[in-house]
């Protein structure tokens, strides 16, 4: 994430945030908190698939960020193709949700195929094979994206501006909530993140597959011994995890700090890893809490930079990685993690 992008995210924040007085200070704190929750919603949406996959399958998927990048471009493509200058606000938001559904369906199917054809044959090997394989897949996806984008006359980096220009007016600027000016886009992201959180939670706690996944995250062998084809659950989880990563990409597509770019692949992967490691690899609850911590830390440090209190543009990244290092030193298994997951 560049300093310019950071500033863009808070471009209209300075007047609000530099106003003096205790009340204004409180309002600023709440506004920063809400923006942190917006970031947390995005981080959660991206990281939850990563943690589900690791929790059940013990696979660290290094291609997860690349899928988010693909999601941002695919979502952007749908928006650019469908939304025109005459498209109304509600219709645009409707198209956004349709794009999200299409991207989720396509990438879930693609993730299932990747699990079946590439990852399944190497389950019995050491984790190094899985890391190298998924890292290789990530590189292939990135390079294919660069080639396709270049052929279509789109710069792979910086962000593809066309879909970012489709953000409806209603999501631009700030809205007054109880006297506090809050960015509407972050409220929208909190809403989507909340929907994803509830949907994943319902899937895990109210469906039979969710039960298998939670049991398998503790002891895969025992689940098999109870007559459950855990490999089928692997395929479902890898597919859903991939789909959720891509949904996160669609969410980032409209975000001025991120936007569709090939670099998104590495940028979001780092944040996703930080979230799942702080929360505890394989823990859904940990991912929720860690996404909140990282989102708010990101928001506070970004505010410190944009208001000029701190002039170091890398403050946000440094803080987040310091959180990661601190967690690894104090509690290596993360907030809610167990020392071994998957039992295999």
């Amino acid at each position: 994430m560049s300093a310019t992008a950071l500033a863009a995210g808070f471009a209209d924040a300075a007047p609000l945030l530099t106003t003096g007085g205790a009340l204004d200070g409180l309002r600023t704190a709440i506004a920063v908190l809400v923006e942190g929750l917006g970031k947390a919603a995005v981080y959660f949406t991206i990281a939850v698939g990563l943690t589900l996959v690791f929790g059940l399958m013990g696979v660290l998927n290094f291609a997860h960020g690349a899928v988010t990048m693909v999601g941002a471009y695919l979502g952007g493509l749908v928006l650019v193709l469908v939304v025109g200058s005459g498209t109304g606000t509600l219709a645009t938001i409707g198209v956004f949700f349709v794009a999200m559904a299409i991207v989720f369906a396509v990438t879930t199917a693609a993730g299932s195929v990747i699990e079946l054809k590439l990852i399944r044959p190497i389950y019995d090997r050491t984790p190094t094979y899985q890391i190298l394989l998924t890292f290789g897949v990530s590189l292939i996806i990135e390079e294919v994206a660069r080639i396709v984008l270049t052929l279509r006359g789109i710069q792979p980096d910086p962000q593809w501006q066309a879909p970012m220009g489709t953000v409806p007016d209603v999501l631009l600027g700030r809205t007054d909530v109880l006297g506090i000016a809050v960015r509407r886009l972050y409220l929208f992201e909190v809403l989507i993140g909340g929907v994803v959180l509830v949907a994943v939670w319902l899937f895990l706690t109210r469906t039979l597959y969710g039960l298998y996944i939670r049991a398998g995250s503790e002891d895969t062998e025992m689940v098999q011994a109870l007559g459950i084809d855990v490999r089928r659950a692997f395929t479902v989880v890898f597919g859903v995890g991939t789909g959720l990563a891509a949904v996160g990409g669609v969410l980032l597509m409209w975000d001025p700090i991120w936007g569709p770019s090939v670099l998104l692949s590495v940028d979001v992967l780092l944040y996703a890893f930080v979230v799942v490691i702080i929360g505890g690899l394989g823990s859904f609850r940990g991912t929720v809490v860690a996404a909140g911590i990282v989102g708010i830390a990101d928001s506070v440090t970004t505010w410190l930079f944009t208001t000029g209190i701190v002039t170091f543009s890398g403050l946000s990244e440094v803080t987040i990685f310091l959180l990661l290092v601190g967690m690894l030193v104090v509690r290596p298994q993360g907030l809610y993690g167990v020392e071994e997951v998957g039992g295999h």
Binding site: L208, L211, Y212, R214, A215, E218, D219, M222, V223, L226, G227, I228
Partner: peptide
């Protein structure tokens, strides 16, 4: 399954 309830442990086994 330590983090599943007793009922959930049994439900996994009774899946079929």
């Amino acid at each position: 399954f330590a983090h599943l309830t007793v009922a959930e442990n049994l439900r996994v086994a009774a899946h079929a």
